[in-house]
Nucleic acid binder design. Sequence first.
RNA 1: UCCCCGGUAGCUCAGUUGGUUAGAGCGGGUGACUGUUAAUCACUAGGUCGUUGGUUCGAGUCCAUCCCGGGGAGCCA
Length: 466
Amino acid sequence: MSADSIKKALSGDISIGSIVKIQGWVRTRRDSKAGFSFVSVHDGSCFDPIQVVAPSDLANYSEEIQKLTSGCAVICTGELVESQGRGQKFEIQASAVKVTGWIDDPDTYPIQPKRHSFEFLRDVAHLRPRTNTFGAITRVRHVAAQAIHRYFHENGFFWINTPIITASDAEGAGDMFRVSTLNMTNLPHNEDGEIDYEQDFFGRETFLTVSGQLNVEGYCQALSKVYTFGPTFRAENSNTTRHLAEFWMIEPEIAFADLDDLADLAEDFLKYVFQAVLDECPDDMAFFAQRIEPKAVERLETLIGAPFVRVDYADAIDILRNSGQKFEFKPEWGLDLQTEHERFLTEKHFDAPVVVKNYPVEIKAFYMRLNDDGKTVAAMDVLAPGIGEIIGGAQREERLDTLQQRMAEQGMDAETYSWYVDLRRYGTVPHAGFGLGFERLITYITGMSNIRDVIPYPRVPGRADF
RNA sequence: UCCCCGGUAGCUCAGUUGGUUAGAGCGGGUGACUGUUAAUCACUAGGUCGUUGGUUCGAGUCCAUCCCGGGGAGCCA
């Protein structure tokens, strides 16, 4: 017979008395001398494990079932019955329990039915998905990803698979990972004594992408509403709870749109994703609220129900300066907001996500649209309590001469970006887009405090295990 | 990269002003008991105290070094 997921077995959709087969991994085993053992089995399909009641008259009872420990893989067949005990509605009265995989040395099996530190679990990243917390994170991550695609699809956006290997540095800042097939122990050199990248695979220097934005702009100015959702790489030596060297980024780009349109999109989009997770992962979210972040559910509900706070950069600076709060770095027009400033705005002053708009031109990237005041650009950041910047975006500079002037000011290579400038030469339109760090979003939703714990196998400076 | 904190049993931790044989809970094993719920009770096994060097009669404890981890900052998503 075919197997059912534990989710289905617990759903109430299977009639009592049916014979079911479930397959999964043992979480705990409790023996009763009354003649049976309780085996708690999970398969990842839902938060709850199912309780399998294995009677002592099973052929392999004393030889196998009584020797089950956490982590053993089992296939259980039996009657789905209403539970006689408290704590679960249904359970399986087993007629057969087949053990497909034992634990080599139960004494040293890392995943025990107890609380582990997240630091320890990072060292066993291949086994941590078996825990409650990482099972829940994985399901939430999946549901959020699906909701993101669904939101865009339903709103007429096209998913654009921008290249992962690139020759251009999309933001003019930040170290990139080099992509090369040259023999590193015997590098070819040109006449000037420099490394001869003409002999490399692509005939030039190439890197892993730090953003799909520049590429997606081309598709935006043809298909109007587009987005990217893919892996992104930053070789910065950042050692924080909110940075990864490899992460997933979502970058919508909309044509015939200005900064306010973009802020509207960011707000509508985030609310949709939050609602989807609340709707589709109630058990997992309840777990986060119970064990990880007490306000995990409440704050999402609050956020969905109220408009986002929007504030101009200049006004944010005034709020900070008049706050009476002592800051290590004094807030000043022209300087970027420090983490302490963002925290004050999101956690104390507004106690909500905040959209900060119109930053000084000096502190923002070349492609952001210059405002009429000549001092600011149409950029926006969405700041979330506890996380900081979750979204960074801007209306793009669509005017050819202004863009060229800004590129020249920053000493950028016109040749490398000629194709990007072309987009302003041929049917240019006002357009805007933002970048959302997927893992930062998951961090915010779940209340997990370290971004390394919301991606399956984190890559950070000095570590690429697994 | 900078600042601070940490590294003791499979895991989570305690370990006094430096002093005999380094402890607990959970997990593992054995037994008892029970429709159990991270079950309970008893017994039991399990440690190169991160590395290297130094101070000392004596170092888990003090100093230096390196390695690793965590938190904060910068940069950003």
